[in-house]
Design a protein around this nucleic acid. Structure first.
Lengths: 204, 204
DNA sequence: CGATCGTCAACGATATATCGTTATCGCTAG
DNA sequence: CTAGCGATAACGATATATCGTTGACGATCG
């Protein structure tokens, strides 16, 4: 097994984003070598459940409602349903496979939905009974994704965008910068973090 | 379908991190309403392939080597192999299902590996031939994860940690701060982004 | 030797499914 | 009316698999 020359070094962007994804804290945990809980190195405010908190759940029935309403438009597979909901909610809500597939199964058991296997995917259709059900309850079913998307403050989306762009900028420095420039980026981020916490520490 | 009161608003942390995951830019794209390319709102430096660039690949044979070496230790399932490699590489490399499962299948076809289904999982074992193969090529197989992990500069890990913590701080402000504080966080991040790009713009 | 081409391994996306945990919420008792 | 309980829906993690794209790299040619 040949050694890997420096120009073959792993893209540090991947390393960074991997740690910041939903697997969050994974790499962090291992680097700190601490046991005692998954968020040993987390923020000082004891963020409940970890740095990103525990998201609030949709209400009971929201997943079912969303599936029924979308299937009333056209047949779709499970993955496509998840994607469509995410899109219509502006990225705020993507129902998990753990909720979508059992819900589809249940709707099938109830005779509201039927499935068709083909081409490595499973297409779900409303049955006649399902269509009647949707027609009868159309107003009550509504559009769960709309409610959840509208509930997110505009500033949250903006801050999200900014975090995105800031992360990208840091990655750029890491990729294209020399040692001194990376060190400088480190200082900037350290100061940023401090400033952010200082906001909450200050009386308004 | 009842309206969602403000106290039920979606956790903005989830919204933020969702947008910053590998699905990156998805929500961003839809918010900007631009067609064109997937990174319409990306950084001004035209980051190749998107804000995170395209990661460099492992060499041909690295996935196979890693699988063989780990299976020589003990039988494992596919998912477990991916996790183990990620752990041993300090989060730098997590081989994808797209590479691991075909590689396992191929190793099986070659008679080096056999599989056993049970309890909703598929356990992979080295065969005698596989064990002989590993013993014979042990030095050449090496530990692909070690090479890749060691190739990542210490500063990359540190910057990764800092990005993590900075993101968490921003989330905290968003969750616990009032309108003015969130606006202040926005300013700070805007300045940070500017400062980061300024690093690269400056002559050293 | 350097450049090009062809092959195929690795990647990211697509796709399905289940399990254990936890939050929602209707029902019931006091 | 309020509090507690039980049932279960939604979530995150686990788990497997395939497809289309792209980069690695050996072979061949000039």
């Amino acid at each position: 097994m040949h050694a890997m020359p420096m120009w073959r070094q792993m893209d540090p962007c991947a390393a960074g984003w991997r740690a910041m994804t939903g697997r969050g804290g994974h790499g962090h945990h291992h680097r700190s070598g601490r046991g005692g809980g998954p968020w040993g190195g987390g923020p000082p405010f004891g963020f409940p459940g970890g740095p990103f908190g525990r998201r609030q759940r949709m209400r009971r029935g929201d997943v079912r409602a969303a599936l029924l309403v979308l299937l009333a438009e056209e047949p779709r597979n499970g993955y496509g349903l998840m994607q469509e909901i995410e899109q219509r909610s502006n990225g705020v809500w993507r129902p998990s496979p753990g909720s979508v597939y059992p819900a589809l199964s249940q709707l099938e058991d109830e005779g509201l939905v039927r499935s068709e296997e083909g081409e490595g995917r499973k297409l779900f259709h409303l049955t006649d009974a399902g269509r009647a059900h949707v027609d009868e309850h159309r107003e009550k079913l509504g559009e769960p994704w709309a409610a959840v998307s509208g509930a997110v403050d505009e500033s949250a989306f903006e801050l999200r965008d900014l975090m995105w762009q800031t992360g990208a900028a840091a990655m750029q420095v890491l990729q294209a910068g020399n040692e001194a420039q990376v060190a400088r980026a480190r200082e900037i981020l350290t100061e940023t973090r401090r400033s952010l916490y200082r906001i909450l520490a200050e009386e308004e």
